[in-house]
Design a protein around this nucleic acid. Structure first.
Length: 221
DNA sequence: ACCACTGCCATTCTTACGTCA
DNA sequence: GCTGACGTAAGAATGGCAGTG
């Protein structure tokens, strides 16, 4: 059973989102090929931006207004290694940071910043996906609400005067939302049973329409 | 209480790309 | 087709704040 991500640090949805491709995180934005992209196997030669940066950023640029800060563009290989590390760990301890920085020929601070920004991008992506998910959920609930309203109207009509020998309607159902996890359930009342006897199912309509609709793991705890 | 360190966040700013005249 | 101006997205970097040991 897939779980809705309930830890924001997890940052990885395991749900299938229609219209969303789990694109490679950062690096190449939307298939854009950067002109300045360096060959993976190419060792940065003297004069590449990385080394310029390495040399220049000893000089504290910026808000003095004098030396405009130079922006480093990571090579594909550097990005690849960073992504690989990120996949393993979303945060680095000082040792890992230093080792990675040395391996990439970057400063520890740069590695740190990259991870910082990478976490932010993940979170943003996560938020966007959750937003989309909630929109779809809302749409589904609206539809379900519409059906239930219709059902209520039919029941009211029956109460006024049911035709003789008419096939009985299915028992009325209600939507309830778990206040803790906001999981919506459809509750069907069973006639002649004790008041607590209900058959509770997850919103089947929504669940079938939206394969990604999964209750949070906390719900099962 | 103070300090150093670290993560997060909002923001700035550079760079590369696409579009258009 | 080429070119320069302009707008925009991506992402590297910065500064500030809060939490922690």
């Amino acid at each position: 059973m897939e779980n809705f991500p309930n830890n924001s640090s997890g940052l990885e949805l395991s749900i299938a989102m229609p219209g969303f491709s789990s694109s490679p995180p950062s690096g190449e934005s939307g298939g854009i090929i950067m002109k300045a992209a360096v060959d993976i196997n190419q060792v940065p030669s003297s004069g590449t931006e990385e080394e310029c940066m390495e040399e220049e950023d000893e000089i504290s640029p910026n808000h003095s207004g004098l030396a405009p800060r130079k922006k480093l563009r990571l090579t594909k290989e550097q990005s690849r290694l960073l992504e690989e590390s990120f996949r393993l760990n979303h945060t680095l301890n000082p040792k890992q940071k230093a080792a990675l920085a040395e391996q990439l020929n970057l400063k520890p601070r740069q590695v740190e910043v990259w991870f910082q920004n990478r976490r932010a991008r993940s979170k943003l992506k996560q938020t966007e996906m959750e937003c989309e998910y909630l929109k779809r959920w809302f749409g589904s609930l609206t539809e379900q609400n519409r059906k239930l309203q219709k059902e209520v109207e039919e029941l009211r009509a029956m109460k006024v005067g049911p035709p003789h020998g008419r096939h009985p309607l299915p028992p009325p159902s209600t939507l309830t939302m778990c206040p803790r996890c906001e999981r919506v359930t459809t509750t069907t009342l069973v006639e002649k049973g004790p008041p607590t006897t209900t058959t509770t199912t997850t919103t089947s309509a929504a669940a079938t329409k939206m394969a990604f609709l999964q209750p949070p793991a906390s719900c099962y705890n």
